[in-house]
Amino acid sequence: MAKNNIKLEAKNLNAYYGDFKALKDITISMEEKAVTAFIGPSGCGKSTFLRTLNRMNDYIDGFRTEGDILLDGKDIYDKNIRVDELRKEVGMVFQKPNPFPKTIFENVVYGLKIQGIKNKAHLEEAAEKSLRQTALWEEVKDKMHKSALALSGGQQQRLCIARALAISPSVILMDEPTSALDPISTAKIEELIYELKNDYTIVIVTHNMQQAGRVSDNTAFFYMGELIEFGKTKTIFTSPSNDRTQNYITGRFG
């Protein structure tokens, strides 16, 4: 499977919410510039795992991890790692589109502005670039200073992706990015994921098995906090080696 370099890696990772062990001894490596999908029934730990990859769980009381998560070989839970720097490298898109209640422009440049970038020309250029990347530019270029909340759900989600791209991360985490969208918007996002993997390492959590099959190169199946099986998407979907994977994929439970 070593076609590409390894971008992200978890080694013997355990995660706890208080006394509850949500992730059990996860070891997995994610290829650079490829799409890795996490599948599994609700509560299996796939979203928890995704959120440990950019430390979004830090603010949850009682959450802690054991083991290592390595980004380009460096442990992201190391004391010397600054979490804001990490999140510039590892962007995230959420389940429900969550544009800020501000203008479209303000949404896209938010990540740059909080880094202290004020140059207007630079910000406008960056906004156009990321909106073009998400194929949103033509749709919104005349209403950049209108509220982002007036956009449709699918447009909002592409705006959220553009917002994440604007700070030039190398990894993008997506937590069920299309579960709140209609089929046409979903197709657009999937197309986008396919294009983005030329430049970015993408990790996507999905409940939609067909989606995992369509967009991902590698698939990981989680169950009850454990990583049951991980491999090429084709292999996982056609000849899984574990019975539970087989049963989940064929819809016998989950």
Binding site: M56, D84, E85, R87, G91, K96, Y110, I114, I167
Partner: peptide
């Protein structure tokens, strides 16, 4: 103010104070 707004801000590298000042307080 919904938690998703805070998540969105943190995920873009904002600190707690930046999130409070730029998102939570205006909203």
């Amino acid at each position: 103010v919904p938690g998703s707004i805070r998540d969105g801000s943190y995920a873009l590298g904002a600190s707690k104070w930046q999130t409070v000042w730029n998102q939570v307080l205006p909203a």
